[in-house]
C-alpha cells in the first residue's frame, strides 16, 4: 500500500519575530538582521520575466520614494537566480525606463520562501505566490497579505497599511475600515465600567460608549 506523507509547513504569524535568513540578493548577501531598526516589506513574486510580476516591480519601484519617506525598505524574492534577477531588472529599465532600486533575493533553494510560507502547492509547487510581509523595526511581523498568481497587488493598499500601522504605533489608537491619513481614528474601547461611563464625556465623537473616534 502506498503511504502518503503530508508535509506540514509552519508559517509565520502576526506578532511573531520574522525568521532570520541569510540570502544572496542583487545587492549582495543580506541577512534579515541587516534591516533591524527599519520597517521592511518582504514581497515575493512567482517568476522573473513574467508580465504581472513586471507590472508589480515597476509599481513597487514607483512606490519606493514614498516608502523611504516612511522609513520602509523593500526586499523582493523569487525562486530565480541572481543572474536572472539582474537580467530582468536590466530589461525592465531598458524597456520601460523604470529603475529597480531595491534588492531582490535569489531563493533558488527555497530556504527563505519556505521559512515565510511563500510556496503554496495548491497554486504552484515551484513558484512563490504573491506575498507581502510587513516587518517592523523590531523585526516583528505586523501584516501579511497573500495574492494568487493571477492577481497583481494594490500599491495604494500597501502604503495605506504602512500609514495605518505607523499611526497606530505612534498614537495608541486603531484605524477604521478604509482609513486614510487625516481621517479620524478609533479610541481603544474602555476596559472598565467606570471608563465606559466617562467615555461619552471626553470630547470624542461617539456612536456609543464602545465606539468613539477622535482626530489626531
Amino acid at each position: 500500500m502506498e503511504e502518503q506523507v503530508e508535509q506540514v509547513v509552519s508559517m509565520p504569524r502576526l506578532g511573531e519575530k520574522a525568521p532570520e535568513f541569510e540570502a544572496p540578493t542583487t545587492h549582495g548577501v543580506l541577512k534579515l538582521s541587516d534591516f533591524k531598526g527599519s520597517w521592511l516589506i518582504i514581497f515575493s513574486h512567482p517568476a522573473d520575466f513574467t508580465p504581472v510580476c513586471t507590472t508589480e516591480f515597476m509599481a513597487f519601484a514607483q512606490l519606493y520614494p514614498e516608502l523611504k519617506k516612511r522609513g520602509v525598505e523593500l526586499l523582493g524574492l523569487s525562486v530565480d537566480s541572481v543572474t536572472s534577477h539582474i537580467a530582468w531588472i536590466r530589461n525592465i529599465e531598458e524597456k520601460t525606463g523604470v529603475k529597480i532600486p531595491f534588492p531582490v533575493i535569489a531563493d533558488l533553494n527555497k530556504d527563505v520562501s519556505m521559512k515565510f510560507g511563500m510556496v503554496h502547492p495548491g497554486q504552484s509547487k515551484t513558484e512563490t505566490v504573491r506575498c507581502v510581509f510587513v516587518i517592523d523595526p523590531n523585526q516583528v511581523i505586523r501584516l501579511i497579505l497573500y495574492y494568487p498568481l493571477t492577481t497583481g497587488r494594490n500599491m495604494d493598499e500597501i502604503l495605506r497599511v504602512i500609514d495605518a500601522l505607523q499611526t497606530t504605533d505612534a498614537n495608541k489608537v486603531a484605524t477604521p475600515a478604509n482609513w486614510r491619513p487625516g481621517d479620524m481614528v478609533i479610541v481603544p474601547p474602555p476596559s472598565t465600567q467606570e471608563m465606559a461611563e466617562e467615555r461619552l464625556n471626553q470630547g470624542y465623537e461617539c456612536v456609543d460608549w464602545y465606539f468613539c473616534k477622535r482626530k489626531l
Binding site: H27, G28, V29, K31, D34, F35, G37, S38, E73
Partner: peptide
C-alpha cells in the same frame, strides 16, 4: 554602521552588509 550610513547617505542594511563583506 549607523554613523557610516548617515555619512555616506546609504541605507543602513547596505552598510551592515558591506561592513560584513
Amino acid at each position: 554602521a549607523a554613523a557610516v550610513a548617515a555619512a555616506a547617505d546609504m541605507p543602513l542594511y547596505r552598510v551592515r552588509s558591506g561592513l560584513r563583506d
